[in-house]
């Protein structure tokens, strides 16, 4: 069982994602960047799914802050976004994300997508 934090302001999406993941993992959610960062620093999860379009702080800014913190070096970070796919992958690449999950999520493969990223060898 892994600890997963979802930072996303879309309540429906968060509910769905949490419902799919929670039978297998411990899931915590935040609906904005500031509370998401607090959760991440307090709980140091195994993985954070970060929406790139947040209402208070840009998602990539959150990811940049996580990536700068050596205490969180073990943590996987995923760009969790409805951005156009090409843009999402480019942002994920330069900001050092471990993966991209495009919204709306595909309920048939979502849990596997997250678990595959959790199992990736870290570079």
């Amino acid at each position: 069982m892994s600890v997963i934090i979802i930072i996303d302001d879309n309540h429906e999406n968060v509910r769905l994602a949490a419902r799919l993941l929670s039978p297998h993992h411990q899931v915590m959610v935040a609906n904005d960047g500031e509370s998401g960062l607090t959760l991440v620093f307090d709980h140091q999860p195994d993985i954070a799914l970060v929406d790139l379009g947040l209402p208070d702080i840009d998602g990539q800014t959150i990811i940049g802050m996580i990536r700068q913190n050596p205490v969180l070096a073990h943590m996987r970070v995923v760009a969790f976004t409805a951005y156009p796919e090409e843009t999402a992958y480019e942002i994920a690449r330069v900001y050092g994300c471990d993966g991209v999950i495009i919204k709306p999520i595909d309920t048939r493969v979502f849990v596997k997508q997250v678990e595959d990223i959790l199992c990736q060898e870290q570079i």
Partner: peptide, 16 residues
């Protein structure tokens, strides 16, 4: 946010 829920580049805002 209601008018932009499906916007091409999501850019939600909070009150601040």
């Amino acid at each position: 946010n209601d008018t932009r829920v499906d916007y091409i580049v999501p850019m939600p805002m909070n009150a601040r």
